[in-house]
Nucleic acid binder design. Structure first.
Lengths: 107, 107
DNA sequence: CTCTAATACAACCATTTGATTGCAAATTAG
DNA sequence: CTAATTTGCAATCAAATGGTTGTATTAGAG
């Protein structure tokens, strides 16, 4: 999870994910789009690959990069878990309020 | 977004978010839970606060930390956007297939 | 075969991160 | 008032990050 979220914490990498989710793109095609060296883009792709967010497939001398939605879903699941926890806080407040309602009439 | 995802890319910080989504917790209560110095935990909370994932509220000499679900939702929205993009890839394939269907019968 | 394009990888550098310790300030407890 | 808690903040340090350039390898074009 650390690597997953860290990989998403960079605008260039998020853009690469966006593009490779829509269509396969070669590393050099990606490199042409950003104002940095080929090697820098190559490293970003490597970070994404290490995080499982993209895969690479050799096609001749090119490596086609493909976004991996399954991995994105894992991040979504974690955030969904946060949302559920938050709801449990509301539930606790409801319980407290309910207890208050029970106590008040008695006084 | 960079700060948001970077803040989530650390297990200790994700745990702090979990705990503070369920109930308000003071910085020192948090510090007691982790095997690191008070200052280190304080810094993690500061990173989360900077990312908008938690807020702090003074209560006497304690600062109660509270998780901010709204900010988590922003991360969810971004990931949801990825998912929609991915679906658009499928749509394009469908279009290609449909075009193929139109062409094939004519040949 | 030769040249070029695409990629991989290493070395290097500046900046950021994640942790530490130490000290000061504010608030509560006794 | 005095002492203990809680927090904030600065200085410091090792490791990771994000970028660079240079070199080597591999595959397609002519």
């Amino acid at each position: 999870m650390n690597r997953l979220f860290r990989a998403l914490a960079d605008a260039t990498r998020r853009d690469i994910v966006r593009r490779t989710l829509v269509a396969d793109v070669s590393v050099s095609q990606l490199a042409d789009s950003y104002d940095m060296s080929f090697a820098a883009v190559q490293k970003h792709v490597a970070v994404l690959e290490d995080a499982g967010l993209v895969t690479k497939e050799a096609h001749g001398r090119e490596r086609m990069v493909r976004g991996n939605l399954a991995r994105i879903r894992q991040a979504q699941l974690l955030l969904d878990g946060f949302e559920e926890l938050w709801r449990s806080r509301i539930d606790r407040l409801d319980i407290l309020l309910a207890e208050g309602d029970l106590a008040s009439p008695g006084t």
